[in-house]
Design a protein around this nucleic acid. Structure first.
Lengths: 233, 233
DNA sequence: GTGCATCGACTTGTCTGACAAGGCCGTGCT
DNA sequence: AGCACGGCCTTGTCAGACAAGTCGATGCAC
């Protein structure tokens, strides 16, 4: 019995991604639609969609008449789960650190903005999520979902769609980061305490307090993320 | 004579985007591949690719058997030029402000990180760009390119691919923002002065000085971006 | 009446083959 | 040496077909 996990183009794109990311391209050339079609025994339509996926990750350029060209690795979309899934573990580990550094930059700033703008309804909602987190401290997966929702809700309260987009686009890294830090002993109850501190700063509409609580929370997570022994996925 | 500006799927996607963004969908339902194919007189393959584009903007969900469903507007990719191009001007104007706010958060932080990490070669390169900017103060388009390159180079120096991605992904907004602020009288020579200050902070590897110069630069730009009369594109 | 299985209509996924349109490069002419 | 042309390869678009999955309505059994 065969389980169909993904569509064909996604699978093909995955192989191409890993081949590109590890430098396994014949002559450094991205294969053409026809070459892909032949090698993977799929129709040209599927090969075509696979290449479109690579293009959407900013990994290649596609133009009529010209063959598909590789783009600089510095510009690839390292926020996409599909890309992350197919690059080597050590790169993922390093990216995880980089993401955490980025998070330390904008999450405290987001807390500051949110503290100045959030509505009573949003405060109420945060309180609910916080309570639910407390209730689910024995269920890591449920806790993780609530944790993400908590941080997203704060970001949403900034009324800034650009910040929101950054946050949303990086949610794979947010999940990965928490999955790791939640492995520490008594991590969940401690996290609840820290989230409560953030909540209180926000509920008091005190930017400084919210920011400080957020920094405190992030520095706890950092320790887990920096450890090399933990599997990244 | 007809000029072909874009591929067919892109054009169709554009119309669908504007229809979705302005609430002009019949019954709130995203049309199916066949409906699109009939309405726009294109093949199903083109209709299909158009929908894939919408999906890549996080505007819709696609799954076999189910018809295409609309996703919440809060999660759309407001960094994509294609999406921006097809939403109303007042939204673009508002998003421009939001982008500037986001920029005020991470660009100073990037300056801090860069000041601690950049190599001699990178300092040299920044100096070259700065000099080129000075030379092109009478050519707004060329100046804009150099300006973007200057800021990208600083971000690149942080050695953080997540930050880099944010910066790269938001380059449409970076361009738009500068195109506006460069309309002010004597904007370019003033900008060169401010960039020189940033450069000097970085070259001295002085995080505080680089950060302060960056903030100064951003606050000048802010004034232009906040003015309502200037066309956003 | 309620619950469930079945069927049919509709949707997206994949395949095949064909031609159009555009870019690249070597040939051969000037 | 330079340029125009033409073949070859590439991506873009079209058409029609069948597979596979979802959803709701129908109708049967209880």
């Amino acid at each position: 019995m065969e389980v169909k996990l993904r569509t064909l183009p996604t699978q093909v794109a995955g192989v191409l991604i890993s081949r590109i990311a590890t430098g396994g391209l014949t002559g450094g050339l991205v294969p053409s639609e026809q070459q892909i079609s032949l090698e993977f025994a799929v129709s040209r339509a599927v090969a075509r969609e696979a290449l479109k996926i690579l293009a959407s990750l900013d990994m290649v350029d596609i133009a009529q008449g010209r063959r598909v060209t590789l783009r600089p690795a510095a510009e690839w979309d390292y926020l996409s789960p599909l890309l992350i899934e197919w690059i080597p573990d050590d790169q993922v580990r390093q990216l995880l650190r980089e993401h955490h550094e980025a998070r330390q930059i904008f999450e405290p700033a987001i807390a500051v903005e949110a503290a100045q703008r959030l509505t009573d309804a949003e405060i109420l909602r945060l309180g609910e999520i916080l309570e639910a987190m407390h209730q689910h401290e024995d269920d890591p997966e449920a806790y993780l979902e609530l944790d993400l929702e908590f941080h997203m809700a704060i970001c949403r309260a900034t009324q800034n769609r650009i910040l929101d987009r950054f946050m949303y686009a990086s949610r794979w890294w947010q999940s990965a980061s928490r999955r790791i830090s939640n492995q520490a002993p008594r991590a969940l109850p401690l996290a609840t305490l820290q989230h409560r501190a953030i909540y209180e700063g926000l509920a008091a509409r005190d930017p400084k307090k919210a920011e400080a609580a957020m920094r405190e929370h992030l520095s706890t997570n950092m320790m887990s993320v920096m450890v090399d022994e933990v599997p990244v996925r």
